[in-house]
Write a protein that binds this DNA or RNA. Structure first.
Length: 501
RNA sequence: GGGCGGGUAGCUCAGGUGGUAGAGCAUCGGACUUUUAAUCCGGUGGCCGCGGGUUCGAGUCCCGCCCCGCUCACCA
């Protein structure tokens, strides 16, 4: 069926606007201009006017000359005068168009200006009788004609699917969306500066990996034509960053995308942003202090203090954060002692006694992980570090001093969200090889998330990596916390949705 | 993949028990030189997610499918 037969309203609205565009062209104007010389951003114009007002008198009221540009977001016409709201990235200002002031011809041409168009206007900023700071236009020009209707002015755009699929509409219609992504940028900026101030070097390592590594996850596979070889979108930058420590850099970090071919939900997007840092001559306990410092620094600067609200709960991130070992946390919240037994079936029975389902294929590590996810994590509302994880769960982490069943690993949790992962890095190449071999065994037994053996990485460790601690922080989740977002899609500009056919 | 909820005009939403699809905003025409969710008068606009079925008759009931959200499972 054709559009003509459908007679869609949307298409009619568009045709009206195209007719206006043609009228604009017909009178020799260009509806898609190249530049406009603004004198102020809108917020600057308001500030400058308010400053002028402090020196004004009743006989000489304040006024400021300005040329402003932005998107027209509403209009109130009354015959020979029209009020409109003009918005740019910094703010909004009312513009007054009077027939006498702009001239009859230009006033009539306002009929061809729609909500959504970009315009530039010159005039004086004054207050109206109602007290509204207003640009009284003496001339204006159409900068860009918009051919589509904007979402409704009062309710905005609420349909989540449209908000995600057409984020530009969400950004136009919902100022809080702009704010949320400004907060995200601020989180990243604060993190980058904090790291740079402490001598960390920002580096870029490959996104295309011949062997996916550095995490336990299924990768996306792609193909390189010239080399006729499959490559994997990275699941983590970890192994490359540690190669840099081998090479002689002592403090490096990377902030960029990782890709995991797994489920999508409120906490997972197939591509997400991670910060990973590695610091030579540091261990996990020292890094725990630094992590706390970094996170509190970001929280204080984004939330305006150590305390903030997430989904109705008050989170107090004031230092020091609570610290407990994973097994202590399990004892406290699940009421069982999984540390007492290292034996798989015994651990399984204990887990089941605590009400956690245990599948037959789960090993000791998986059981501990499951109990943590089911019984411990839901209790970790206030910022908490869990540390000392079983070796089965952490193939890249160094064995704990004095207890080879554990690794020197920690994870920060805030508001039930796991926002990072860190450890004393395993730098013993022979131990690392054994761990990889175990992963390969798991893989061959059918665990498609087990890690691959990366010979070159082992070679690098044989060259020698100094004692090193490493940390990963999920930028998206940290941003969720600080923007009170229930879903990761709210903090990713273009979240992955099923493509429309 | 399972469970629950949703999909009606461009946007935001109504549409007891089946009986000619509604409102506000936007849009179009008209009035109006101080409005600011402007106001007043008049109009246009609908594959009611898609496909079957039941029925004299389906937005409404039944079946299947698609898309979205939440949730469980897996994962960060």
């Amino acid at each position: 069926m054709t559009d003509e037969l459908h007679h869609s309203t949307e298409e009619e609205l568009r045709q009206h606007r195209i007719a206006k565009l043609e009228r604009i062209r017909a009178r020799g104007d260009e509806p898609f201009k190249y530049t406009f010389a603004r004198t102020h951003a809108i917020a600057e114009a308001r500030a400058s006017f308010e400053k002028a007002e402090t020196a004004a008198t009743p006989d000489a009221p304040a006024e400021t000359a300005a040329a402003l540009a932005g998107r027209l977001v509403s209009r109130r016409g009354q015959g020979k005068s029209t009020f409109a709201d003009l918005r740019d990235e910094t703010g909004k200002i009312q513009v007054f168009f009077g027939q006498r002031q702009v001239g009859e011809e230009a006033y009539t041409a306002l009929k061809d200006v729609d909500i959504g168009d970009f315009i530039g206007a010159h005039g004086m900023v004054r207050r109206t009788r109602a007290g509204e700071i207003t640009l009284f236009a003496d001339r204006y020009e159409i900068l860009t004609k918009s051919l589509r209707a904007l979402p409704e002015k009062y309710h905005g755009l609420t349909d989540v699917e449209t908000r995600y699929r057409q984020r530009y509409l969400d950004l136009v219609a919902n100022p809080e969306t702009l704010d949320r992504f400004r907060a995200r940028a601020r989180v990243i900026d604060l993190m980058r500066r904090w790291l740079a101030d402490r001598g960390f070097l920002e580096v870029e390592t490959p996104m295309l990996h011949p062997i996916p590594g550095g995490a336990t996850a299924r990768p996306f596979i792609t193909h390189h034509n010239t080399y006729d070889t499959d490559l994997y979108l990275r699941i983590a930058p970890e192994l490359y960053l540690k190669r840099l420590i081998v090479g002689g850099f002592e403090k490096v970090f990377e902030i960029n995308r990782c890709f995991r071919n797994e489920g999508v939900d409120t906490r997972h997007n197939p591509e997400f942003t991670m910060m990973e840092l590695y610091e030579a001559y540091q261990d996990y306990l020292g890094l725990m202090d630094e992590t706390e410092e970094l996170l509190v620094h970001i929280i204080e600067n984004v939330a305006g203090g150590a305390a903030f609200t997430y989904q109705g709960e008050t989170i107090d991130a004031a230092r020091p954060w609570k610290r407990m070992t994973l097994f202590e946390a399990i004892r406290e919240h699940a009421g069982i002692d999984l540390e007492a037994t290292r034996e798989r079936d015994g651990a399984g029975r204990l887990a089941q006694s605590a009400g956690v389902e245990v599948a037959p294929e789960m090993g000791y590590g998986a059981i501990v992980d499951e109990v943590m996810a089911a019984k411990v994590r839901p209790q970790l509302v206030q910022p908490t570090f869990l540390y000392d994880y079983p070796i089965e769960l952490s193939p890249l982490a160094k064995k704990k001093r004095g207890n080879p069943a554990l690794t020197e690993r920690f994870q920060p949790f805030v508001a039930r969200l796991e926002i990072g992962n860190a450890f004393s890095e395993l730098n013993d190449p022979m131990d690392q090889r054994e761990r990889f071999v175990e992963q390969v065994r798991l893989r061959e037994a059918g665990d498609d998330e087990a890690q691959y053996l990366d010979e070159d990485y082992i070679t690098a460790l044989e060259v020698g990596m100094p004692p090193t601690a490493g940390l990963g922080i999920g930028i998206d989740r940290l941003t969720m916390l600080l923007t009170d977002s229930a879903s990761i899609r709210e903090v990713i500009l273009f979240p992955q949705l099923r493509p429309l056919k």
